[in-house]
Design a protein around this nucleic acid. Structure first.
Length: 431
RNA sequence: UCCCCGGUAGCUCAAUUGGCAGAGUAGGUGGCUGUUAACCACUUGGUUGUUGGUUCGAGUCCAACCCGGGGAGCCA
């Protein structure tokens, strides 16, 4: 007896196989039951005939509750009437565990209900497709890093102090009377890693305790942070553009069916193959003025400003050289213009907003010490970070990419909460 | 933290001016010649978020609180 999964049925036409899954739906008539079996790899219609099973075996199969776990044995048939092109002519149906009344139906549900049932919601077709795309994005990133000879160097989750000194962090008690924080970014550690290995990256969860309440925010999200020694802002921008192009290409190539399930506009994604526009902060401000949008040079972009700029391009847009006041202390200043920092943000198209933030780091010890003081940060806490400038400092840079925002954009989803298996948000930490 | 919206059956929602709390769906029963969110008939199911107030009478009006959603700020 061949044990297989729904996605491989095409290799077994005419054979008798065994499938293990859950009952996702059922349609019945007097002579036939159509049992829809979902096994994680796909869903297949299994035909149960009264004639073959006999009345006694046939009747109860019309009453199996939804989401009961089943094994079904049957002959694989290619059939144009079946969704997916194949169906199983059942010869045996065994119930592993009969489900209680399943709360999630095929009809609409509200976000509160679905989020409270996230552990079950993950079973639904759209969520499975989305998780596959998330997996593909992560796989593409790791493959891209491997191809570019970056080393994966994981950053710590517990940190002794704020990385950037700006965001609100989650505090945790760290033995006795010591306080630790959940990491907000692995970047500073990646700078150490880049000095050790040349090219390094981390990919893991990060935490922000800000009380943000929008479709783009989670309190726990995953971030990919590559960092390169001997690199400048242009190298960082090249890496960011190549990375996004590679990720989108991988999803288009390998997850077409899932994009279809999500009804994603494929043409919008295909435009990512074209070069990404790169404009300076100052040019972006000028463009806003041209559009009659009020904005004063020197401030950071708000949601509306970002939306306006990204709406001008079908590709992700790179905005570089921001006023240094709005950027973190470790950003290197532009040697051409002292008011500017060599930072870059990448805005995803279609209104999805910032997916990447990064830039070139300050590599001069004296300047960095000055910036720490100016930002009111303790030199003692950052002593190890300053060491990186004491012992063989080089120009270097990198960026952070928000995994869920990237998945959200590529999959065309409304809210990042669906783009992580178990979202953590303001006022929601269950299940 | 601020602004806006909402909370009625397991779920999605309706309920006119303050006047008997309803539908679809899920669950149950029966029917149906291969169904595609199957369909048809019947049927179970209610502390209207909580507390208080106004009123002959409150799902509806008022107050406070609780919970959730959307957005802003901040960020990825």
């Amino acid at each position: 007896m061949t044990r297989t999964t729904v996605n491989h049925l095409g290799d077994h036409v005419g054979e008798t196989v065994n499938l293990e899954g859950w009952l996702s739906n059922r349609r019945s008539s007097k002579k036939l039951h159509f049992l829809l079996l979902r096994d994680g790899s796909g869903t297949v219609q299994c035909v149960v005939s009264r004639e073959k099973f006999g009345d006694e075996a046939f009747e109860p199969l019309g009453h199996i509750p939804y989401e009961s776990s089943l094994t079904i044995e049957g002959v694989v048939k290619a059939d144009a009437r079946a969704q997916g092109g194949y169906e199983l002519e059942a010869t045996d149906v065994r119930v592993i565990s009969e489900a209680q009344e399943y709360p999630i139906s095929n009809k609409d549900h509200g976000p509160d209900f679905l989020l409270s049932h996230r552990h079950l919601w993950l079973r639904s077709r759209k969520q499975v497709a989305l998780m596959r795309i998330r997996d593909e994005v992560l796989r593409a990133i790791r493959g891209f890093m491997h191809d570019r000879e970056f080393l994966c160097i994981d950053a710590p989750i517990f940190t002794p102090n704020a990385c950037e000194g700006t965001s609100t962090l989650f505090e945790v008690n760290y033995f006795d009377d010591e306080t630790a924080f959940l990491t907000q970014s692995g970047q500073l550690y990646m700078e150490a890693a880049a000095m050790a290995y040349g090219k390094a990256y981390c990919l893991g969860p990060t935490f922000r305790a800000e009380k943000s309440k929008t479709r783009r925010h989670l309190t726990e999200f995953w971030m990919w942070e590559p960092e390169m020694a001997h690199s400048d802002l242009d190298d960082v921008m090249d890496l960011a553009e190549d990375a996004l192009r590679t990720i989108v290409e991988a999803v288009l190539t390998n997850r077409g069916e899932d994009l279809e399930v999500l009804k994603r506009d494929i043409e919008a994604l295909e435009r990512v193959r074209e070069p990404f526009p790169r404009i300076s902060y100052t040019e972006a401000v000028e463009k806003m003025h041209e559009k009659g949008h009020e904005f004063e040079w020197g401030g950071d972009f708000g949601a509306r400003d970002e939306a306006l700029i990204s709406s001008l391009y079908p590709q992700p847009v790179l905005i570089h050289r921001y006023p240094q006041e709005v950027k973190a202390f470790y950003m290197k200043r532009d040697p051409q213009d002292d008011r500017l920092a060599l930072g870059v943000d990448v805005l995803a198209p279609e209104g999805y907003g910032e997916v990447i933030g990064g830039g070139q780091r300050e590599d001069d010890l004296d300047l960095l010490q000055g910036r720490l003081r100016a930002h009111g940060l303790s030199e003692e806490a950052f002593a190890w970070y300053l060491d990186l400038r004491r012992y063989g400092s080089v120009p270097h840079g990198g960026f952070g990419l928000g995994i869920e925002r990237t998945v959200c954009w590529i999959a065309g989803i409304e809210h990042v909460r669906e783009c992580i298996p178990f979202p953590r948000m303001l006022y929601r930490i269950y299940p």
